[in-house]
Design a protein around this nucleic acid. Structure first.
Lengths: 160, 160
DNA sequence: CGTATTCTCTCGCTCAGCGAGATACTAGGT
DNA sequence: ACCTAGTATCTCGCTGAGCGAGAGAATACG
């Protein structure tokens, strides 16, 4: 996509590849968002909500806003937006009536699959060129990179 | 980070890992942006500009806006912002005087390295746990995934 | 009970990005 | 030379995402 230099260190080349993949993923997400009149934040929220739904974890506006790094006002607006689009529903928690529980509508699940389904299919297809052992290596690698990135991030956050 | 289910298909698990890595990268970028009073778009622009500078490719507002999917008005505002921060400079192209050429200030390069340098160092360190052959496999894998994602994206774009 | 705490929402504001159009320059035909 | 079409950037006015401050409602805790 961007530069086709003859990089020296294979490890640096990998960092670059990793970033290229990230950029491509983000572009795919942006494409999806734009097509459905969603803002980037809406999509991030939707993904978080679908993840939580699959894990049967209840989600409140507070938790969602925290995860997306929005303040409470922004979170309210976000949920208003998603609710207006019929993607999510607010329900008062019966045990703690200060809280609101967010439930994703079936429409949201369908929407997610309609777009990411084919994309995931393409990815799975491309994985056929690799042996199980190789995929295992890649999985370890990705896990290591994720951990390292998290470490770098929290390091940076604690080191003003 | 999100769900810790016992997924069946290792390939699906990999898709998930890939997404997790992407999310973590984006969070790191957001952390950097927030710390320096940059908007997400500013950071994307800066990365594009630094890439172009390293490849010695000249960048005009038009090209930049195209890459970031901004219209001309938004692009002008973006460059105004970057210029006000002293990260970039506008210069009229002498051969085609309709054009403006953007050059990144040394300050921008320093800024980028001050943050991503340590992060990249952490990533490189984490790669020491893998053999060159393994890293080679991972590189092929990432390239395949990037290509597949691009394909899925342009497919979706052409299939309204 | 009263007081502090927690969770969500409202209000007013700032500013990123959009659409429409202005401006300035270049290219090509005649 | 001139007129027209095309290209690159910028200006203006507007919409709306997200912020800070704080209100309102429910719970926890002394």
């Amino acid at each position: 996509m961007s530069t086709e230099e003859n990089r020296q260190d294979p490890r640096l080349r990998l960092v670059h590849q990793l970033r290229a993949a990230t950029v491509e993923f983000d572009l795919l997400a942006a494409e999806f968002a734009a097509r459905h009149g969603l803002h980037p934040t809406d999509l991030r929220a939707l993904i978080a909500l679908l993840d939580a739904a699959r894990a049967e974890r209840p989600v409140t506006p507070g938790r969602l806003g925290e995860q997306l790094r929005l303040n409470s006002a922004g979170t309210t607006t976000l949920i208003d937006r998603l609710e207006r689009l019929g993607l999510v529903r607010r329900e008062r928690d019966t045990t703690d009536r200060r809280r609101v529980l967010l439930t994703v509508e079936p429409r949201a699940v369908d929407l997610g699959w309609s777009f990411f389904g084919p994309a995931i299919g393409t990815l799975l297809g491309a994985m056929d060129a690799f042996t199980p052992a190789e995929l295992d290596t890649v999985e370890r690698f990705l896990a290591a990179m994720t951990t390292a990135t998290t470490a770098a991030r929290t390091n940076a956050a604690h080191h003003p």
